[in-house]
Design a protein around this nucleic acid. Structure first.
Lengths: 341, 341
DNA sequence: CGATGTGATGTAAGCGCATACATACCCCGT
DNA sequence: ACGGGGTATGTATGCGCTTACATCACATCG
């Protein structure tokens, strides 16, 4: 690979503008320290020569990379995309740029991403979730850079984190259904593997049920990919189970819920009269399904924005009171109703 | 900001391993050039000291940043997210990392992103669309780095590009409807502003219509944000127009089409019996709407992957025959049918 | 057995910039 | 007119690494 083209250097600009390289550097980085006429001359010459500070030289001398790393499961999910977009917007205001790595729910890959990001000199890291190899956190600690976990948050979490309490959120959904009078529940959820958030959610459901002396039957809990297709297949499977069938189905996200909605209709069931179904995330389409979906909204943009806030503050040695839970809440539409009979 | 922590340097490792810094560097970058025992010793000492090559030093000395820039309209859209994910996956195989910038259909922002990316030392750039200030392309040319435009592609495009021909794609959709017997068409499309692809699409529709001696009435063409809500509002507006109303509605993407589907149902129209509606992108949900949506699939992942291929090849001075059109085609489902009567 | 080649390692020169420190200059007060 | 203090600019060093080149040990072969 020969990626290099020899361009002009600060020295060339200095010579052409009849100043020293120090003044060239100052004209770019501390304009107020340079007399207006000199600065203008330098900037003009630089533009003419097509020069601007070479990042590696600048990074080396100033010991700053102006890079923040964001490690997320996948970009193919609005939830993370929104978060990253907000992080990036805020970071850009401070002149920092964001490096994104998607790890596809694979701890190997998250480790690899953190490794290369550190090798690229990121000054801070935002990472989705807790399910990562201990080595990942050790590497970060060893580097001594600020980091923050995003998406999930729990009162007893062992890292700086910004997000929402998955257990609480799903307990909230469950109580909504309990209050409507439901007693038999089904759950269609994402893979538990390497995703502590999903475990938290099941926990939240189970706790809310336990409060009323209820429980979840294993045959009414199905796990699979977070896609419409599995939402449909999952509901089929639950309804095919032995014995009395659930009257309420709690889904891991809106896509699963929409799939379930379809499967229910295909079986001639009326939602919500015969079966209540809930989603999660309050995606755009949730308001437009037939019937409109009861779901749970989380302010994902706030997660990204506050994560940026936190990291920026840490980099400046400031304190920032932004860790913890972000806003969110149940959005009741018409896919939930009292159970039949 | 004090982002710096003084860590060990190559010299520390060299000393501890009783070799020169050159050998340390080689042990990391050209392991095969170092005797096995020495290499192991160096790597062990390095790990023990928690050292690895400082990126800025490495970048400065080797004149490589291993960075590729991706400039896209927004991450909030699956279409671009998929493309970026593929680009990134391919780039990572070669040890390069991808810097992402979303410009929100604002040329100012795309310019700003390219500027900071160049300042970060990216070695190549992938950019969505042609609607950017000339200055943007000048900056890239001045830097002399490879770049490729993605998403849109035309036979007469003036840049290296990978994507699909928006005009052809929409002509194809239009002909499908023409073949079904439609003669009056409506269009619900995204903002034309700073988005040459949308203009291309309208062009394609008009050309296909012209071939059969037909045209588009201005009052049957509405422009607005690419959201469900506007899909619905747009259809309302078209149906409220004076005179005979369209029997086929061509939408700029699946979200608009789904919105239109809803509005049609709300007005008591049966799709496709009373009205045909088409989408674009073949998003996951398109197969699950009521009725399932006729739409147009584009292999967005291939765009990202081939863009990476092209840039990588250029960086290595190789030729790569990947520019041009990617796969795609009409997906006929049941939201289209012959016009009523 | 000495000339020559080969592979492993060391030496040292930058890579392009920021910045602490030194210097020159100017303004002002006295 | 002179000194003090502030401001604009220059000087020179080093950031941490890679790599061309020099060197050295050793094996090979005529």
């Amino acid at each position: 690979m020969n990626a290099h083209r020899k361009g002009p250097t600060a020295a060339d600009v200095a010579r052409a503008a009849q100043v020293s390289t120090a003044t060239v550097s100052r004209a770019f980085n501390n304009p107020e320290k340079v007399a207006a006429d000199v600065r203008d001359r330098v900037l003009r010459v630089a533009k003419q020569l097509g020069w601007f500070p070479h990042p590696a030289g600048a990074a080396l001398a100033s010991r700053r990379s102006w890079l923040i790393g964001a490690v997320i499961p996948t970009l193919d999910n609005d939830v993370f995309a929104r978060q990253v977009a907000a992080l990036q917007a805020r970071a850009m205001q401070e002149g920092m740029t964001v490096l994104i790595g998607s790890f596809n729910y694979d701890p190997e890959q998250s480790l690899a991403h953190v490794r290369t990001m550190l090798a690229r000199g990121v000054e801070a890291l935002a990472i989705v979730g807790e399910s990562h190899p201990p080595e990942l956190f050790q590497m970060i600690e060893a580097r001594g850079i600020p980091y923050v976990l995003t998406y999930g948050w729990r009162p007893d979490i062992a890292h700086p984190a910004i997000g929402f309490d998955n257990a609480c959120a799903y307990a909230r959904i469950t109580r909504h259904l309990l209050d409507l009078g439901h007693e038999r529940f089904g759950v269609i959820h994402q893979p538990l593997h390497n995703n502590e958030r999903v475990g938290q959610r099941l926990l939240g459901i189970r706790q809310a049920l336990a409060e009323r002396g209820l429980g979840l039957r294993p045959r009414h809990v199905v796990e699979g990919p977070a896609r419409l297709e599995f939402g449909a297949a999952g509901l089929e499977r639950i309804l095919a189970a032995e014995g009395p069938v659930p009257t309420a189905i709690i889904c891991g996200n809106d896509a699963l819920a929409i799939g379930a909605l379809h499967a229910a209709r295909a079986r001639g069931l009326n939602v919500p009269r015969d079966l209540s179904i809930t989603g999660f995330d309050d995606s755009e389409i949730a308001a437009w399904t037939e019937p409109p979906l009861t779901t749970y909204a989380v302010d994902y943009a706030a997660i990204g924005q506050r994560a940026a806030e936190y990291l920026l503050a840490r980099l400046e040695g400031r304190a920032a009171d932004v860790l913890g839970a972000v806003g969110g809440g149940l959005v009741v539409r018409t896919s939930t109703a009292p159970p039949p009979g």
